Structure formats: C-alpha cells, structure tokens
Computed example of a mutant assay.
Amino acid sequence: MPRRMIPRNIELYRDHSESYETVDVEGRPHVICPQCLTPVLLCQSLSDRQRRKAARLRETDSVAAMNYLKKAVPCGERAAKAVVLHLRKKDEGCHYCGHPMPRGALLCANCMSVNLDWN
C-alpha cells in the first residue's frame, strides 16, 4: 500500500458525497482522485487520436484543451477542467508530485493522484 494511504486517509476517501456535488459525471465511467477527491471522467468515448489532441493542447494552452473536451465528450466546465488537470505530460512522471510512473498507470504509487496518460 502506498505510504500516503494511511487508515485515516482511507476513511476520508470512502465518502464521495461532496465530490459529486462539484462535478456531474452523469453516469459516465469515472474515477475519484484520492489526492484531490475530484471525479475525473475517463472519456472512453474519445478515440486515441482525440485523446492525443487534447494532451497536445494541454501542453500549450489548458483553456483550449478544456474547450476541446467540452465539445468532444461533451461535459461541463468543471468536468473538463478535472480531466485537463490530471493529464500527464509526455515522458514525465506524476502530474502532481513528479514521481516516475510506468506508461499507462492510472494512480501514482507515491501520492495516489490520478494520472491520465494520453500521449
């Protein structure tokens, strides 16, 4: 078990009621980030090409990436922002703590943050 998921944090993570008040997932596949407790859409309806485009946009302009996701998924502004904030940069570690991560990993072993690897 990662060192940050101590029993107290596990208890806090079990209640997601406040998380669902901020982002409406509308029954779509998502994961709650243990680090920030935000629902992150997995965007399974996007093709690999669309995911790579969103990741490229995020590297240069986060707002453009959010606008692209709002139209492509479609989703609200908060849901798009949550996805963009959890996108990992190409060939880098965790977006939150920078810890090295293998390709395709969803959770960082160090900080338990959700990382979407779309590059």
Results as ranks from 00 to 15, higher is better:
Y68R: 09
E21P: 03
L12S: 12
E26F: 00
I32A: 03
D24I: 14
P102C: 10
C33H: 08
Y96C: 09
A55T: 11
D117P: 01
G76N: 03
A82M: 04
N110I: 05
V31T: 04
V23E: 04
Q44F: 00
H16E: 05
S45G: 10
C97A: 13
L106Q: 01
D61Y: 07
K81C: 12
I32L: 10
D91N: 15
R8Y: 11
A55C: 14
P29E: 11
C36W: 04
S19M: 00
R58T: 07
P29C: 02
P2Q: 12
E11D: 06
K71D: 15
K70C: 07
L87A: 03
C36S: 03
I10V: 11
V25L: 13
R56V: 13
A79T: 09
N110F: 14
E11I: 05
C75F: 01
Y96F: 13
E26G: 00
A55P: 06
E92C: 02
P100G: 14
D61T: 05
M112K: 01
V73E: 14
R78C: 06
T38G: 02
C36F: 01
Y20L: 02
I6M: 08
V63W: 08
V63R: 11
R4A: 13
G98A: 08
H86K: 03
L46D: 08
H30Q: 09
L41E: 04
C43F: 09
A79N: 07
L85R: 07
K81S: 12
R51S: 08
D15S: 08
L69F: 09
R51M: 12
C33K: 01
R51W: 04
L106W: 10
V83L: 05
E59Q: 14
V31M: 05
H86C: 11
K81N: 08
V84N: 03
S17Q: 08
G93C: 06
C94Q: 06
R51Q: 10
L12T: 00
L69T: 04
E21T: 09
W118N: 01
T38S: 12
D48M: 07
E59I: 03
L87P: 01
S17F: 07
C75W: 01
C108L: 06
A64T: 04
L69M: 11
L42T: 10
L87G: 02
R28T: 12
H95E: 14
N9E: 04
P29Q: 12
M66S: 12
N9C: 01
L85Q: 02
E11K: 14
T38E: 12
E21F: 00
R58S: 11
R56T: 13
Q44A: 06
M5I: 08
M5Y: 12
L37Y: 03
R4G: 04
Y20A: 00
S113F: 04
L87Q: 00
H30N: 09
R78W: 10
H99S: 15
G98D: 13
R103M: 09
G104E: 10
Y20H: 11
P29Y: 10
V40H: 09
P102W: 07
M66Q: 12
P7M: 04
S62R: 15
A54D: 09
R51Y: 10
